[in-house]
Design a protein around this nucleic acid. Structure first.
Lengths: 245, 245
DNA sequence: TAGTGGTCTAGACCACCCA
DNA sequence: GGGTGGTCTAGACCACTAC
């Protein structure tokens, strides 16, 4: 263990960050998969040759970043989208009246294409790379609320199809379990736009009525972009909720 | 110092949280004001009769919540909206093309009224309590981008006027320095709406064109709501940016 | 009872800032 | 050089879970 590489070195990083990087590598490689327990703090400490407090600080940071989940008395686990509690971490939609309804994801279309300049830039692909495009509708208690168009690198999701999409509970848990791609962070850009014909039909609103356009780039480990998504939100009965801390 | 009040007590809280509450009380009372340094960790440790590590953990949490700001070698300071870096913490607006422009807050109107049922509920006031309403325009490089209508309890901002608003750099730093009200957290609800006549005129868009409506409730210490704000965002050249962690 | 994470301590040393 | 926050250690004990 490089204990500091210190003395004004520009690549200095404290021990606990080096530990964090080591643990991260185990996550990236899939050696410790979503839902699995990772070794105990004391075991990691002896394995890495540092004190338990140092391991603790590394894990603290990763828990704060939603990469790991601690459970007192049981252990520390790799975070997973199968956990229903983490579902609304990426869907900031709440009903105006507070009454939660059942949500249902309805896949509409799924086809292959070649990445245009925009998608290629956003997903860090070569222009012309094979991509998979998915359209789907999110219904909340029989009301269509979100119409999504999702762009994915085909290389990572080789056999994705409508059949497979229909069998999944949630997109991100499907990506995680079937393709080993874990979504950990996303950037969203929100705009108000007028509904075009396609969105208007699916969302059952009149063409030209205001919709919330949510463009999302989703990243997996190592800041690697793996999904681009344009979602049209009907905000008659729902709103996008955000907390500013 | 109540070291645990433990043994299955429902009001159990660890030492460092009790320290945190003590520090919080100093902030709420204004004894340690925005921008001021707070006592050093070692001094707080001896003052409260705990170890430095315990104080450290308390301050860690408060720094993570943007209540305090640590500066290695200098000390720990009470967070302030005068710090220009904290300006965009509550304004998640970015230009589509990435080029930042000068921002300018233009106060339009300021008058008193009585709280209706809605405002009273949101601001936890008695219906009919005196409130102050402010309208203002946010310009980014000569383009009007946000039209805000702001509802405040008059009791907290007794002499607020257009004159005073015009002299301020930013609203929240004004509230902080002149009225001792520090905004620390906010809840936002976003919707897409059609521009009404008033908003359309101020934002120089055609009536009925889509606008992003951002409704914000802002809180000071103790989860006390102190501002309600309805902002109409023109999202032609700008977007609302959000990171999902 | 054994193993896990959670809290707390005391003390050492490092990195940074300023007078 | 003296004060501040930042890192790291070793060890103790508490709280929770499972068996």
């Amino acid at each position: 263990m490089n204990r500091s590489s210190s003395l004004h070195s520009p690549t200095f990083s404290p021990l606990y960050r080096q530990i964090k990087d080591l643990v991260l590598r185990h996550l990236e490689s899939g050696e410790w998969g979503p839902g699995d327990p990772i070794p105990s703090e004391s075991e990691l400490a002896t394995r890495f040759g540092v004190s338990q407090g140092t391991v603790r600080k590394a894990i603290d940071e990763m828990a704060a970043e939603n990469l790991l989940v601690r459970q007192q008395g049981k252990g520390t686990f790799v975070a997973t989208h199968k956990d229903p509690g983490s579902y609304f971490r990426f869907l900031r939609l709440l009903p105006n009246d507070g009454e939660t309804r059942l949500s249902q994801s309805v896949p509409l279309e799924c086809w292959r294409a070649k990445a245009g300049a925009d998608v290629a830039r956003i997903l860090a692909l070569e222009p012309g790379s094979p991509i998979t495009i998915v359209r789907r509708l999110l219904k909340l208690g029989d009301e269509p609320v979100v119409f999504d168009e999702i762009y994915l690198p085909s290389e990572l999701f080789p056999d994705l199809s409508l059949e497979i999409l229909r069998s999944a509970e949630s997109l991100y848990s499907l990506f995680e379990t079937r393709y080993g791609v874990r979504m950990i962070r996303a950037d969203e850009r929100l705009r108000a736009v007028a509904a075009d014909r396609v969105s208007a039909e699916w969302l059952q609103v009149t063409e030209g009525s205001p919709l919330l356009l949510v463009e999302r780039v989703t990243f997996t480990y190592g800041h690697k972009p793996v999904e681009w998504r344009r979602g049209f939100y009907s905000t008659r009965n729902y709103h996008y909720h955000n907390e500013l801390g």
